[in-house]
């Protein structure tokens, strides 16, 4: 790298000198593509704001999310309570701000667990082949055939309603598509020359799987996860709405809609506000996912 080169030139160089430069360069190229997509940037900004909101919730929230004030219950939005109050006189805005933590927790954990299960099962099935493949894919099919929400409902009902179990139930219903995807990727990679080369060097099965196959499956999985995030949020909110997620008095957004359901005709804001929050966040994830797909998986979504 010469001193006359700007950082941009260094990143966009056609002839990278080091592996690190090549990798950063590729990353930068992707970023440029992503940045050109205004809607994807909007999604990213919303999500960054959401992260900030969750991180600084106690500082940002004007009131305590749990403080009841029965004298001022079901107040419409005002200067005092920007988004109004609920049936127990709690400030809806404060509850929304604190609720972002729960939403992020659920989405984050599901998005960590489900793809890893899927990746593991899919790659093992694809790599091992034979009856292992048959059995694993049959199991995957069974889970796919299940009505997702009913399966999640059944899990939570069996395990008892709580956030942790909601996460588990969502993860257990969300992994099969990842397994399918990972298996398909593995099948195309399995017979590649570089795998044969690694095998000739004496690499064991585990090494081939974890060091060579996993890294190549990850990028398409990431795209898929980003696109699925919105669905996870909606499913999580659905569970919360049915009373199977976070338990009162936790300010979970789906549960808040459920609280407001009784008053919908007279005090619409109680249910409307958390719904708008869910909508905004899941839309942001959808926009981000579309943008990421264009960058990481051009063949999939270029159209």
């Amino acid at each position: 790298m010469t001193n006359t080169m700007t950082r941009r030139e260094w990143l966009l160089s056609d002839a990278p000198q080091t592996r690190r430069q090549a990798r950063l360069g590729a990353f930068y190229q992707g970023w440029l593509t992503f940045r050109a997509n205004k809607l994807a940037m909007l999604g990213l900004i919303i999500l960054i704001l959401l992260l900030g909101m969750a991180a600084f919730a106690p500082l940002l929230a004007p009131k305590s999310p749990f403080a009841q004030d029965l004298a001022s219950r079901l107040q419409p939005p005002s200067a005092e309570h920007w988004l109004g109050t609920d049936a127990l006189g709690r400030d809806i805005l404060s509850r929304l701000i604190h609720g972002s933590r729960i939403t992020l927790f659920i989405v984050g954990t599901v998005a960590l667990i489900a793809p890893v299960i899927g990746l593991f099962i899919g790659t093992v099935a694809g790599f091992a082949g034979g009856w292992v493949d048959q059995v694993l894919m049959r199991i995957t099919d069974i889970f796919l055939a299940f009505p997702k929400l009913i399966l999640a409902l059944a899990f939570v009902a069996a395990l008892g309603p709580s956030i942790g179990n909601a996460v588990l139930a969502l993860a257990l219903t969300a992994w099969p598509p990842y397994a399918r995807l990972a298996r398909a990727e593995t099948l195309t990679i399995r017979n590649a020359d570089f795998i044969a080369a690694a095998r000739l060097q004496g690499a064991g099965r585990a090494r081939l799987l974890f060091r060579h196959i996993w890294p190549l499956c990850v990028s398409s999985l990431i795209v898929r996860v980003a696109l699925d995030m919105a669905g996870i949020i909606l499913s999580a909110a659905g569970l919360g709405f049915l009373g199977l997620g976070a338990q009162p008095p936790m300010p979970e957004w789906g549960a808040m809609i459920s609280d407001g359901r009784t008053y919908i005709l007279d005090f619409w804001w109680v249910a409307a506000m958390p719904g708008l929050a869910i909508f905004t966040v899941s839309m942001a994830f959808n926009l981000l996912g579309d943008g990421l797909r264009d960058v990481l998986d051009p063949k999939g979504g270029a159209k």
Binding site: L234, A237, I257, W268, A271, G275, I278, F279, M283
Partner: peptide
């Protein structure tokens, strides 16, 4: 489609009830 993919169905249902029924 974006809105359809992002909107919680139970919330949209409630809002529908509020507007078209209520």
């Amino acid at each position: 489609a974006l809105v359809g993919y992002s909107m919680p169905i139970f919330w949209l249902g409630l809002m529908g009830l509020l507007i078209f029924y209520g």
